[in-house]
């Protein structure tokens, strides 16, 4: 097996197409993401951003095209297999596990890294105990990292909204991924929280050696932290490049002005 190097893209989509009946949710999408980058996917509502995430994380199998992770095809794998290979994600609508505490939610995230079997759990061999302790420590450290260690023992669904989003990120990080997919991490946050989240995402990349791919509607965030921006419209890529380049692309401006101008801050685009 060849080792991946920094020149090799971490994620590569080649001609990915996903249809729902007659609707082409993602059409012939090419996308390349290099390691240690923060890449953004933007586009109007219904552009197919979440659908693309679902294709990468294994919820959908694209009808055409190929998705490569570290050079290996991953389309058609089950979500748990994709996670085991090193991709983790969060959701546009928060999906925390009900009835489990904050700490337990993160522990579920560690699952993919653990090896204990039910028999091991019954016998509690030293190696199982050791693993369990390591998992607990890792989960707690992650909670400290996202600033939720103090509320580790309360039910996850009782957290305020912003904390729930951070918890989702901690849970995703728990599987020790190479690539983190964030679906609108700042949705529903106030400006201060948005600011914090932005720093947080940078810290993720810098301190944890992660590649981050995010979907975002808040243009100030996108323009601020992205190394690369991809714009989708009706499932197709209409522009790609640095934030400055994309901002000034007439096609992008038209796509935004021509469609849901209510959700996207047009002034910001122009500035």
């Amino acid at each position: 097996m060849k080792e991946h190097t920094d020149h090799q893209p971490i994620l590569q989509a080649i001609g990915v197409t996903k249809r729902f009946g007659g609707l082409v949710a993602v059409g012939d999408l090419d996308l390349t993401i290099m390691p240690n980058q923060i890449a953004s996917v933007i586009g109007p509502n219904g552009a197919g951003k979440t659908t693309f995430f679902n294709c990468v994380s294994g919820f959908y199998t694209p009808e055409e095209g190929e998705i490569r992770f570290l050079g290996h095809p991953i389309q058609g794998l089950r979500p748990d297999q994709v996670t085991a290979r090193g991709i983790a994600r969060t959701y546009q609508n928060i999906h925390l596990f009900k009835g489990m505490t904050v700490l337990e939610n993160v522990l579920v995230g560690v699952h993919a890294n653990l090896r204990s079997t039910p028999l091991g759990a019954l016998l509690r061999l030293p190696i199982n105990n050791q693993e369990e302790e390591t998992a607990l420590a890792r989960a707690y450290e992650l909670l400290e990292f996202v600033g939720l260690a103090d509320v580790a023992d309360i039910l996850a669904t009782n957290l305020p909204y912003g904390s729930q989003r951070r918890l989702e990120i901690a849970r995703a990080l728990a599987s020790n991924p190479r690539l983190l997919l964030l679906d609108e991490p700042t949705a529903g946050m106030n400006p201060q929280e948005t600011e914090d989240t932005m720093h947080f995402i940078r810290r993720l990349r810098d301190e944890r050696d992660l590649t981050v791919l995010l979907i975002e509607h808040d243009m100030s965030v996108v323009m601020n932290i992205s190394d690369q921006v991809t714009v989708l419209d009706y499932g197709r890529k209409i522009s790609e490049g640095t934030p400055e380049y994309v901002q000034n692309d007439p096609l992008v401006i038209e796509a935004y002005l021509g469609t849901a101008a209510d959700k996207v801050d047009v002034d910001l685009l122009a500035s």
Binding site: M100, E104, V108, H111, P118
Partner: peptide, 9 residues
């Protein structure tokens, strides 16, 4: 254990 948390999730 690990399996218990998986069930719960």
């Amino acid at each position: 254990s690990r399996i218990g948390r998986a069930w719960s999730a």
